[in-house]
Amino acid sequence: MTNVSMTVNGKAVSGEVEGRTLLSDFLRENLHLTGTHVGCDTSQCGACTVHVAGKMVKSCTMLALEADGGDVSTIEGMANEDGSLGVIQAAFQEHHGLQCGFCTPGMVMAASALLAENSSPSEAEIRHHLDGNICRCTGYHNIVKSIQAAASALS
């Protein structure tokens, strides 16, 4: 077991992990941040998407030790300070961009990474950007719409 420390959603955290512990497991099991989901074991589904140093990362693809000293954001850190939904979250609710909600944390984190880099993505750019995030419920139609709406709300 090794000690890791990092900042998660602006708070300093630490914990004991094995060398093989994934960042996703560290978030879920050690920190009880269960909003980050695990939907596969081949790094394909994106349900586990978080930001590390502002970049979108599949947390099942990174060891907890690799994030030592890093700055991590998860879905739990996406709401406004007063607890109300952030712009992207609100757009997903307004446009019915989620059904079962299992892919949703990953979708919101992916959308926020996209909009940070490209403030007015085209439909094709949004769809291309989501290639690493699988949703089985929505057929993607309303996820795309939600991200388009979030883009206009943010600009």
């Binding site: 879920r28 941040l33 269960t34 909003g35 980050t36 989901h37 695990v38 998860t74 879905i75 739990e76 996406m78 709401a79 939904l85 979250q89 997903f92 609710q93 307004e94 019915h96 989620l98 909600g101 299992f102 949703t104 944390p105 919101v108």
Partner: peptide, 19 residues
């Protein structure tokens, strides 16, 4: 009507069995 369940799902507060 907008879905009331969305708020917990969008903030990571959903309670799935593995949670």
């Amino acid at each position: 009507s907008k879905r009331r369940e969305d708020v917990r799902f969008l903030t990571g507060k959903g309670k799935y069995t593995d949670d």
